[in-house]
Amino acid sequence: MEITSYHAHLYYDESTYAKALLVIEKAKALDFIQVGRAHQKEVGPHPRWSCQFLFAADKLNEMIPWLLENRDGLTVFTHANTGNDYLDHTQNTLWMGEILELKLDIFK
């Protein structure tokens, strides 16, 4: 299994959207990640509104402490990107905060 990169998904809802935007703005200042769109709807397998942070495999050791310090109590789902979406969303994962049930049917 070769990990090519990682996605960290910051989860929020209508009541925590403003808090999430502050975390997202801080993330944009990092030079080693790409920040996706702050969705105000559920996207893909994600059970809440989310924003994706994409970073290289060799940046995991920098990103995890940053997320721990900056997530402001929000749930973060991080997964490897290996080319196997199902395994990447079920076994190659890290959670901070709540562990939520993903909509895995899209991978079947």
Rank of each mutant, 00 (worst) to 15 (best):
68 L>T: 10
48 R>F: 04
77 F>Y: 03
82 T>K: 12
1 M>Q: 07
40 Q>F: 07
39 H>K: 02
80 A>V: 00
100 L>T: 10
78 T>D: 04
90 T>E: 07
57 A>S: 04
96 M>E: 14
61 N>H: 08
107 F>W: 07
73 G>V: 05
18 A>G: 02
85 D>K: 13
59 K>C: 12
85 D>N: 13
27 A>P: 05
18 A>F: 05
86 Y>F: 15
65 P>T: 03
95 W>T: 15
36 G>E: 10
101 E>C: 08
15 S>G: 04
88 D>I: 10
27 A>R: 00
96 M>C: 10
37 R>K: 15
52 Q>A: 02
22 L>T: 10
50 S>F: 03
30 L>G: 14
57 A>R: 00
98 E>T: 06
9 H>V: 05
46 H>D: 14
47 P>W: 06
88 D>R: 09
100 L>H: 12
41 K>W: 07
98 E>L: 10
57 A>T: 02
72 D>C: 02
64 I>C: 06
38 A>D: 12
82 T>M: 11
108 K>R: 14
85 D>A: 15
3 I>C: 06
59 K>F: 05
11 Y>Q: 04
43 V>L: 05
61 N>G: 09
80 A>M: 01
33 I>H: 03
50 S>K: 11
105 D>R: 07
16 T>N: 09
85 D>Q: 13
75 T>G: 09
18 A>M: 05
62 E>T: 04
87 L>P: 00
85 D>E: 15
8 A>C: 10
60 L>C: 06
102 L>T: 07
31 D>W: 02
89 H>C: 12
33 I>W: 03
19 K>A: 12
72 D>S: 05
55 F>C: 15
8 A>L: 04
84 N>T: 12
42 E>T: 12
26 K>D: 15
24 I>R: 14
89 H>Y: 11
18 A>T: 09
24 I>A: 13
81 N>E: 13
18 A>H: 06
68 L>G: 08
101 E>H: 11
65 P>G: 08
1 M>E: 12
62 E>W: 01
41 K>P: 11
24 I>Q: 13
81 N>T: 11
11 Y>H: 09
20 A>I: 02
11 Y>P: 05
52 Q>M: 02
97 G>A: 14
80 A>Q: 10
96 M>G: 13
71 R>D: 03
44 G>K: 11
31 D>Q: 11
16 T>L: 05
26 K>S: 14
17 Y>P: 00
52 Q>D: 06
21 L>G: 01
22 L>A: 13
76 V>T: 11
60 L>I: 14
50 S>Q: 13
33 I>D: 06
21 L>E: 12
52 Q>N: 00
55 F>T: 14
11 Y>F: 15
51 C>Q: 05
38 A>Q: 11
74 L>T: 02
35 V>W: 01
57 A>E: 06
10 L>T: 05
51 C>L: 02
43 V>Y: 00
36 G>H: 07
16 T>A: 08
8 A>T: 11
40 Q>S: 14
16 T>R: 09
94 L>G: 01
82 T>N: 09
25 E>R: 15
30 L>N: 13
90 T>A: 08
52 Q>H: 03
28 K>V: 12
39 H>M: 03
37 R>G: 04
38 A>Y: 06
26 K>Y: 04
100 L>E: 14
